[in-house]
Amino acid sequence: MKRSPFQMAQDRRLRLISLRLLLLVIVLVIWQIGSLGAPPFILPSPARTGSAWADLVVTSGFWADFGITFYRIVVGFALAALVGAAMGLVLGASRTLGEFFEPVLVVVNTVSSSIWAIFALIWFGLSNWSTIFVVFMTAMPLILTNVWQGTRTVNREFVELAQTFRMSKPKVLWKIYLPTILPLFFAGARLAFGFGARVSIVAETLGASSGIGYRLRQAADLVQTDQVFAWTLTLVALMIALEAIVLKPLERHLFSWRERPSA
């Protein structure tokens, strides 16, 4: 019997899900075996980590720390997206400005996030702004570079077509530049968000008195290794959830014109 396309798509889904589950089981088994030969403060078993996580989630402090870290990442990223996109457009629109500021971008890109974290601590002390600053300095150049590159890929022929219709400059920016840049902006923003989320933890271990990074360092200082593992799992879960719930559907919606199969 021939299977319908719908059934075939479902088969593919099932296959993918079982592969993922298999991988998860293998990792858990290796983890379990490894934990048998090591004391819990070196490598806690999956069960111990699980119960530590279960205990953690019910504390009121968990959601406060989770929320404050998430807030810092989002604010830093939003500022980076705003400033990066605007400056990328300006640098792309003016050749002179682009050539003038290019070295600044190179320098900003070579400074490590840990150094930004130290500067942040000096300038902002133990506050939200330390972490936000580090996320911003990491994410902003990535977005700026991508948008800047994007302005160079704008098709001159499309702009000329708009001229024959006597379309106004703002409309040309909105209807031709924006759709051309959007895929590159999105790729840059996604990368920047991932980097930003990771460096936010570094920043919090150095310059914060709350948040996931602060709790991680605290747990490490007290040799509560199971807590360290639990917080790490929380972070991983957060990033996967954001990818699956926000980024993937948004991308599918924005770029649906590419994904459709040809008739």
Partner: peptide
Amino acid sequence: EDRLFPWRTTAQNVAFGLEAA
């Protein structure tokens, strides 16, 4: 060249000149 925008449907591409106006 036809200069159709790849991100617009046929109807949206055709509407381009009307949007300018």
